Amino acid sequence: MDKPFFLALDFRTSEDVKHFIEQNDFYGVPVKVGMELFYREGKEMISWLKDHHHPIFLDLKLHDIPTTVEKAMYNLADLGVDIVNVHASGGSEMIRAAKRGLEAGAKDYLPKLIAVTILTSMDQQVLEEEIYVKQKINQAANRLAKLSKNSGADGVVCSAHEAAMIKEVCGKDFLTVTPGIRLADSKADDQKRIATPAFAKQNGADYLVIGRSITKADNPKHNYYRVLEEWNNA
């Protein structure tokens, strides 16, 4: 991919997506398809995006018993997306099962498998008081990244604040995909561990995931190029 970020298509319907892409001439840009869109539009949405040359990160965050995840990944493998993911907290056996499913189901192309460490909507208080993880959030993310790598994942979803540390432990070729990216003048919304594109690049991110700073902007195309410029000049 020649562009450093996935544009999050957090829209309800395929009509909304097509209108947004056409209106802003975003044909061919890398995109993230999440639960909201995929659960409604499914394979047909993926096919349309592929027909228009979009690299695709299918962000479903699978988390279930290993057998179920393996079978689900087998079914997702031949969609032709570039990246799929699971929750690292599902454990090593589940991650390995996900990789087996992808390898068995892939035809022309094997998607990259990445694992979510700690959601960027969570902070230290949530981690300790609700999830009962008695580690600093960066330590917990680092531990889950090492688990993911040792279980066959190609990378992780992590906060930009943890990307450099994960690279140090897991190697420079281990992918770090960082959501929670905001332009400096954008709202944080429901994200807690946010970062600018420049900070993410400087701290070791391979790819960004950015949505509302662009999709909710008065001028989405202008903000899209602001992100590119900030990344390139970081």
Rank of each mutant, 00 (worst) to 15 (best):
G211T: 06
K167E: 07
S186T: 12
I46D: 09
I181S: 02
R40P: 06
V133Y: 12
V157G: 05
G101I: 10
P55S: 12
G101F: 12
Q139E: 15
T67I: 11
L76Y: 14
M45F: 09
H54I: 00
M94T: 03
A140L: 01
K136L: 14
G171S: 08
A98W: 03
N150W: 03
P179Y: 10
I21E: 11
A184S: 15
K201F: 11
Q139R: 10
W231K: 01
K201H: 08
A115D: 03
N232D: 12
S121V: 09
T68I: 09
Y207V: 10
H87C: 10
L175T: 04
V227A: 04
L102M: 04
K172E: 15
L113P: 04
F5P: 04
D2S: 14
A234F: 11
G90I: 06
R143E: 15
Y224L: 10
L127I: 11
T13P: 12
K192E: 09
N138P: 00
V157D: 00
Y207A: 05
E103G: 00
N223M: 06
D190M: 07
Y74I: 03
I95R: 02
G211C: 05
I210K: 02
D82H: 11
S89T: 11
G101V: 01
H63L: 10
I65C: 03
H87W: 08
I181G: 02
F57Q: 06
N232I: 00
D16W: 11
M35F: 14
L110N: 06
R226K: 13
A195L: 08
M35P: 00
V31R: 02
V116H: 04
S151N: 03
F199S: 01
Y39F: 13
G80N: 00
G90R: 01
K18F: 05
R143S: 12
Q23N: 15
Q191A: 05
M165V: 08
H222Q: 15
D108N: 14
L7M: 06
T178Y: 07
M122E: 11
H63R: 04
D123M: 08
T196Q: 07
Y39W: 02
A200S: 07
G204A: 07
K99Q: 12
S213H: 06
D64Q: 02
D218S: 13
K112Y: 15
Q23E: 15
D206F: 01
K112G: 00
G180I: 01
G34P: 02
K107E: 12
K99W: 03
G105D: 11
A104D: 13
I131W: 10
Y225T: 00
S47R: 14
K187A: 13
L7V: 05
N233M: 13
K107D: 06
T67G: 03
E130I: 06
I56R: 07
Y109W: 14
A8R: 05
D154K: 06
M122H: 12
S92G: 10
V209I: 15
I46E: 03
V17Y: 11
